[in-house]
Design a protein around this nucleic acid. Structure first.
Lengths: 136, 136
DNA sequence: ATTCATGCAAAGGGTTTGCAGGAAA
DNA sequence: TTTCCTGCAAACCCTTTGCATGAAT
């Protein structure tokens, strides 16, 4: 995961393969924040011979390109095709992730950078709770 | 077949072993949000024959008891002996975690629960950025 | 033709677990 | 004595990677 340091036009680094395109398409049409193996299943309906390694490699590349978001909450990573600013709620019982119904708070980054010494590039809020399905 | 008085105190479930006590003590005296293997090193200075498995088991129990917080950001989990409400900043370059210098926002949980259907139990904010050490 | 990506399978690495002996209560 | 805990090591599981082949440009 290295950047391109030069000022010239960077060579084309990424190709648009069928595998990469289908992975991105599938991710964009669901709102379920699937894990890599769930994406593997989804994509295999279109490309039965795709390998799990290819799925992982493409998820890495797509998130490097900023086309998807990688969520590192539980034991498996989850992925989100919605790259607009928004927050999440995670169910403590079943690990499901849904979008949180609150507006982004753009002022937070500035506040955090004030005395931290860090260069702040972003933030994410994750709520925890119990989802309707688990809330028997 | 002695009767079990249903109103009695439930049996003691957790013992205070030396290993558990030292792990908690070590975690409370640093502000570095160490990973399990870092805690393993810290604790081995006091209990050289402790095993890494014991460290993992106790970290799990302590976080179940609410005595420590488990942070699930990067590829390794990190642990925090400060259970008061506060947020974190994570360095994208070295994965270091420090406390964020902003006040907790207690109203967030209510906002999030309004139309989510979830029972919201808490939230956490993680800022991302580059720490002073990595910001050469 | 060049260079990047794929499929397959094996390796990696953090975390969990089975077991027999040990120690809190 | 009872029940929980420990150390050790193996198992687990998600993820990454090496290699030869295949495909995008």
């Amino acid at each position: 995961m290295k950047g391109e340091p030069s000022t010239e036009n960077h060579r084309q680094k990424y190709r648009l393969t069928r595998q990469r395109r289908v992975i991105l398409d599938e991710l964009r049409k669901v709102h379920t924040h699937p894990s890599a193996d769930e994406i593997y299943s989804m994509v295999r309906r279109h490309i039965p011979r795709i390998s799990l390694g290819t799925v992982y490699r493409n998820l890495e590349i797509l998130s490097e390109q900023g086309k998807i978001i990688k969520l590192s909450g539980g034991k498996q990573k989850r992925f989100d095709g919605n790259t607009g600013p928004h927050y999440h709620i995670r169910c403590l019982a079943c690990d499901k992730v849904v979008d949180a119904p609150i507006d982004p708070i753009p002022t937070l980054n500035l506040q955090a950078s004030r005395l931290a010494g860090f260069t702040i590039t972003g933030h994410h809020i994750e709520f925890t709770g119990i989802c309707p399905d688990c809330n028997t």
